[in-house]
């Protein structure tokens, strides 16, 4: 990586660090404030002017919030939904992207344009008919109903297709000569070459699934199948919102995903460099 870098003069280095530091501060301080505020009492959260550090650290926001529902059950449901949905998304999206980028066939443009256009239909707008379909297929009130409908996300197809377009056909041709079939070309050659794009789609899918609450809220009507985001949403009432619990739950709900991201970061970004086009 370092070898690749063309800027190694110290001055520029300093400027880069300074810019990055200022940028990260802008990005991170609001988040830090959430974390700190989650240890404040409701009265202190409502204080004006606001405090930065808690006057008195209290942990009851956490204990009381968690005591109100079965935290581990919700957490497990969230993990199950996020992981399986992401896996399905990755596989079917990359298959579709492979077809759309490496084959010429009648209907290709139409399928692609249609996908791109529907890509921008906000889920809120078609929620009702989508749910009617889910119910008709018997998937209402199952985790499957949360997982499957958004899996064919055009966004994922789009990201992967864009990336696959940049991959040379040489290797495919070489493999063909060796007698490889369509599927093994996709599986053994295309997928490894696409690691960076797959990583981006993974991040996108995990984030999206983990944070989504409206779709699970509609589909699931049994409390034992609730996900973590539904637990967070419950504290928003008509007239009164328990912000202290909302904040505590927010922090709890981002911890797993921060952990995943921290763990994956090496593979996500640095790993990309070693694969990429050098495959």
């Amino acid at each position: 990586m370092a070898r690749k870098n063309r800027i190694n003069r110290k001055k520029t280095n300093g400027a880069v660090i300074l810019l990055l530091a200022v940028g990260s501060a802008l990005m991170f301080v609001p988040v830090l404030w959430i974390i700190l505020s989650s240890f404040k009492s409701l009265a202190e959260i409502y204080r004006s002017p606001p405090t930065f550090l808690p006057e008195r650290w209290i942990f009851t926001n956490y204990t009381e919030a968690v005591a109100q529902f079965r935290f581990l059950r919700y957490l497990w449901n969230s993990i199950l939904v996020t992981l399986s949905a992401t896996l399905i998304t990755l596989i079917i999206n990359s298959m579709a992207a492979f077809a759309l980028s490496k084959y010429q066939f009648p209907g290709r443009s139409i399928i692609f344009i249609l996908m791109l256009a529907t890509l921008m239909i906000p889920i809120r707008v078609i929620m009702l008919p989508v749910y009617l379909m889910v119910a008709r297929l018997g998937m209402a009130n199952t985790l499957l109903g949360i997982i499957i409908p958004p899996a064919a996300t055009p966004t994922g197809v789009f990201i992967l297709r864009q990336y696959m377009l940049t991959i040379s056909d040489e290797m495919i041709d070489a493999a063909k000569i060796d007698g490889a079939g369509h599927f093994s070309i996709y599986w053994k050659i295309m997928l490894p070459l696409c690691t960076p794009a797959l990583a981006v789609v993974t991040v996108f899918s995990v984030m999206w699934r983990w944070n989504d609450f409206l779709w699970p809220l509609i589909v699931i009507n049994r409390e034992k199948l609730f996900t973590l985001q539904l637990a967070l949403a419950r504290f928003r009432g008509e007239l009164v919102t328990d912000w202290n619990y909302v904040l505590a739950m927010t922090v709890l709900s981002i911890i797993p995903i921060v952990a995943v991201f921290a763990g994956m970061q090496k593979y996500l970004i640095q790993g990309i460099a070693s694969t990429g086009l050098k495959g």
Partner: peptide
Amino acid sequence: VDFAIVPFGELNQLLITQASAGQAP
């Protein structure tokens, strides 16, 4: 009793959508 708490902001949408599909609480 399967008791579930949902956010008020989405209550109308939730009930209309679920009830339309015969899945009302």
